[in-house]
Write a protein that binds this DNA or RNA. Structure first.
Lengths: 126, 126
DNA sequence: TAGTTTTTTTGGACTTTGTCTAAAAACATT
DNA sequence: AATGTTTTTAGACAAAGTCCAAAAAAACTA
């Protein structure tokens, strides 16, 4: 356990990550604020490591950049087509439903649902 | 309608793409075989265009490269964790299920299911 | 059809995201 | 403290994709 890895862990437990989805670059910038000397490679290494250990979850973002989610429970994501905002959709039954529908023994899933969020829907009425 | 765009359309209708998921680079290489002078930017432009027009579907691949699918009907993908092979899972009811579960008026979804495919499962028994 | 306007293509530079490497530093173990 | 292992570091590198301004092609107009 190095100082750098400990920092990463604390970042993922902090409000900066709580309930949010962060890119590697956002994590890097934040980590540099707290530990200016930290290297990009270290942040990337640890992100990979933490994801492999199951401490965080890596999901593929919309624009090419991967996102990291400190909520490791299997869940889907509602993505607003307008503002790109992300909301979790935790569906306890969803996993079982997907197994049944696919007829396979699914290990995990990644689900993105496109919609228009409440506030964007209202904006659009103007 | 330019010659280049017509070529792209024909590629997506051909066996090269039928039932498969192709990266931009694979499409580019194939297009260059048929029209050597075609530019990378043109292929990328047209991929974006065709996706916007709904003629093809863009899905985010596993390794960072986006994939293009000529099957535009909403469907999910079964991805083998071992060999990375992709199988479609077309579920007519899935879309409605997802709307119901999320409680939102979903426009589209993107679904990846991780599993181990038949042949990889057998290999593993050795 | 000729001339004009609009759209598309082109090639290359550029950006973003991420990986790799070899040397240095930190860590763990005894 | 000495040793061996692991991690970090900086920078080079790579892949995937975007952006740009000039040239070419297409579409439009009269």
């Amino acid at each position: 356990m190095t100082k750098q890895k400990a920092l990463m862990l604390s970042i993922f437990r902090s409000d900066f990550c709580h309930g949010k989805h962060r890119t590697a670059d956002e994590i890097l910038a934040y980590a540099k604020d707290l530990m200016p000397g930290i290297s990009r490679a270290t942040v990337y290494n640890n992100l990979k490591e933490l994801a492999k250990e199951g401490i965080i979850r890596r999901i593929s973002g919309d624009d090419g950049a991967d996102l990291y989610d400190s909520d490791t429970a299997l869940h889907g994501h509602l993505i607003c087509s307008v503002c790109k905002g992300v909301r979790d959709v935790g569906a306890p039954r969803l996993f079982e439903d997907l197994k049944r529908i696919s007829g396979e023994d699914i290990e995990a899933y990644e689900l993105k649902l496109r919609y228009v969020c409440e506030s964007c829907r209202h904006q659009n009425l103007n």
